[in-house]
């Protein structure tokens, strides 16, 4: 049983990092990223590229984490001039372009077949690394949240014009947040590649983005604890379908589809009845004169 628990904890930790990354973009800054799977995929493919081309692991990690924010900045640049829903379409499209490119250009990392990468043989070590990454990401996000930048981002989220009247250029801060949060997701991707030991296009489908969204919206997009809680619930639901299928003798196809339907229902129900998520963002008061 221990191996399975270790595996589940590792999964939850990695997906929580993706959730926190989305929390910074959506919860804190109000950016609707429908391509959250993209930085994750870029990170993983950095590792895949290194493995295929005989580069050391650290080089793959560097490529993955370096390329993710770069692409992020490229994608965010037009956001200053686009309203949110157009930007959402751009990110959705960018994620698919990347996946299609990996699928069809076999020179990068094995094309449709995918590529083997060095696998962390020690599962406990993998879990510890994932937890370290999660802790680091959470602490960083927490600091960012409490910093003057965090306050400004909230203003930006609620009212871009107000932020602009304060003399702040919204785009600059959106750039910073995107770069930071895409590095996080890229790191999660690198770690995921080495935990799984394999990178393939089938891991980075559009649906993956919405599993992350479900977790973030469920837990409460505006708090880190909410994001981690939401991720844990969503990932454990995913894992538990195996046991439900075995125990209920229902076909696993049916159980798997009902699980996804439940995710969809969660997204809708949370918006209808508890838009702030399970753990809401506390009201904050600031005294502007005290600083």
């Amino acid at each position: 049983m221990t191996d399975f628990i270790i595996f589940s904890v590792t999964t939850i930790a990695i997906w929580s990092v993706l959730g926190i990354s989305l929390h910074l973009q959506f919860g804190l800054t109000g950016l609707v990223n429908f391509g959250q799977v993209l930085p994750f995929a870029v990170g993983a493919y950095g590792a895949g590229f290194a493995a295929v081309h005989g580069l050391p692991i650290w080089a793959g990690a560097l490529i993955g984490c370096g390329l993710a924010p770069l692409i992020g900045v490229l994608v965010i640049l037009p956001a200053g001039r686009l309203t949110q829903d157009y930007w959402a379409l751009v990110t959705l499209g960018a994620g698919e372009i990347f996946r299609l490119a990996m699928l069809n250009i076999s020179g990068i990392a094995g094309g449709v077949e995918g590529a083997s990468v060095v696998r962390l043989g020690d599962r406990t070590l993998a879990m510890v690394l994932a937890l370290v990454l999660l802790t680091g990401t959470a602490l960083f996000a927490f600091r960012m949240d409490r910093s003057p930048l965090g306050r400004l981002l909230r203003v930006l989220r609620e009212d871009e014009t107000l932020a602009a009247t304060l003399g702040r250029n919204p785009l600059r801060f959106q750039l910073v947040v995107t770069a930071v949060s895409w590095v996080m997701a890229g790191l999660a991707g690198v770690l995921y590649a080495h935990v799984t030991g394999y990178v393939s296009p089938s891991s980075f489908m559009v649906i993956e983005t919405f599993v992350i969204w479900t977790a973030v919206v469920l837990g409460g997009p505006n708090t880190i604890a909410g994001v981690v809680l939401g991720t844990a619930v969503v990932q454990l639901t995913g894992v538990s379908t195996r046991f439900i299928a075995q125990w209920s003798h229902l076909p696993s196809e049916l159980v798997a589809n009902l699980r996804l339907a439940a995710f969809g229902a969660v997204l809708v129900l949370v918006f209808l009845f508890r838009p702030q998520g399970v753990i809401p963002e506390p009201k904050r008061r600031y005294n502007a004169d005290s600083r």
Binding site: G30, V32, F34, T83, Q84, D85, A88, I207, F210, W213, T214, V217, E253, L254, N257, L258, R259, L260, A261, F263, G264, A265, V266, L267, V268, F271, L272, P275
Partner: peptide, 30 residues
């Protein structure tokens, strides 16, 4: 769904529409 959410932001509606899509497609698949 949508009639009850007329006043939320366009982003919110968009996310909800994904939830609706995920729900419908999974039920069809089931």
């Amino acid at each position: 769904v949508f009639a009850r959410l007329r006043n939320i932001t366009p982003e919110g509606k968009m996310i909800v529409s994904w939830g609706v899509a995920l729900f419908i497609r999974s039920i069809v698949a089931a």
